[in-house]
């Protein structure tokens, strides 16, 4: 059974990778090994552009959501009050709302307040859905954290900044890095929310893949998919390494 499920999981990906090297235009039969789709891909300036957009959005969204998310995790862990109960609900809710709803609701807000759709709105939306994931990733780390260390540092005369730089960041660093890595992958992967809140000039790689699937030459997408896959794998493996490493 497990074996059958594994075949189910890996067969599509294997076929896709094989197809990207197939010189036949519409797939189907194997017509010999070829790299021509990769060449066509790297000549396509709109693909390069979409890649740059994806990286800009992912970097900004990761940076902002990591800072805000870490601060949220800190508050959720440190204080037990009514405020934190509602705070918890607010941070939790985006995790269970389907992306379609998140996308449409943010689109409606941007339209109502006459905000022009584009890279900015995409970045705002990405920060929003990355934030909760960062907060809960860091929160999980904080729950194992021994707060008596802080007391000890204070007793030995360390100031708040010194405690932050010398104790908190080094000890919580791996947790925060794991959260950031998660935010980066989520942002880079997102299609649905970007589709809703994006505008002209904000095409990211997933949106580009989507429009190519709808209209473009099919064979190039195979090559694009494999390149994209290689990239996500690298980020995901780095993420795994960070998550595994305990302090």
């Amino acid at each position: 059974m497990t074996f059958a499920v594994m075949i189910f999981m890996y067969l599509p990906i294997a076929v896709l990778i094989a197809q990207s090297f197939n010189s036949s235009r519409y797939g189907g039969r194997w017509k010999g090994f070829s790299l021509k789709w990769y060449e066509a891909l790297f000549r396509d300036s709109s693909v390069i552009n979409a890649t740059l957009n994806t990286l800009v959005v992912a970097l900004v969204a990761t940076l902002v959501s990591t800072v805000i998310g870490t601060s949220a995790a800190w508050a959720l862990n440190r204080y037990k009050s009514r405020l934190q109960t509602s705070h918890y609900g607010l941070v939790y809710a985006p995790l269970v709302v389907p992306d379609v709803l998140m996308g449409i609701s943010m689109l409606l807000m941007f339209v109502s307040f006459k905000v022009e759709l584009g890279l900015t709105t995409v970045i705002l939306a990405h920060i929003t859905f990355c934030l909760s994931f960062v907060a809960f990733t860091v929160l999980a780390r904080l729950q194992d954290f021994d707060f008596t260390i802080l007391q000890a540092a204070q007793d030995l005369g360390a100031g708040p900044w010194r405690i932050l730089w010398k104790i908190l960041l080094p000890l919580l660093g791996p947790g925060i890095a794991a959260g950031a890595m998660m935010a980066f992958t989520l942002s880079m992967d997102d299609f649905v929310v970007t589709f809703f809140v994006g505008g002209p000039g904000s095409t990211t790689l997933p949106v580009k893949v989507y429009s190519m699937m709808k209209h473009g030459p099919p064979a190039i997408i195979n090559a694009l998919s494999v390149v994209f896959m290689a990239f996500t794998f690298t980020v995901a493996i780095l993420g795994q390494i960070f998550t595994r490493k305990k302090f």
Binding site: L11, P12, I13, V15, L16, Q19, Y26, G27, G28, R29, D189, F191, L205, P206, V209, Y210, M213, I221, N222, S225, F228, M229, T232, F233, A236
Partner: peptide, 18 residues
């Protein structure tokens, strides 16, 4: 770890009439 759309696309290739 593969992008969501790419997984769908892989299935399209697999299920394609040819």
């Amino acid at each position: 770890w593969t992008n969501f759309l790419i997984r769908i696309f892989a299935w399209r290739t697999l299920l394609h009439p040819e």
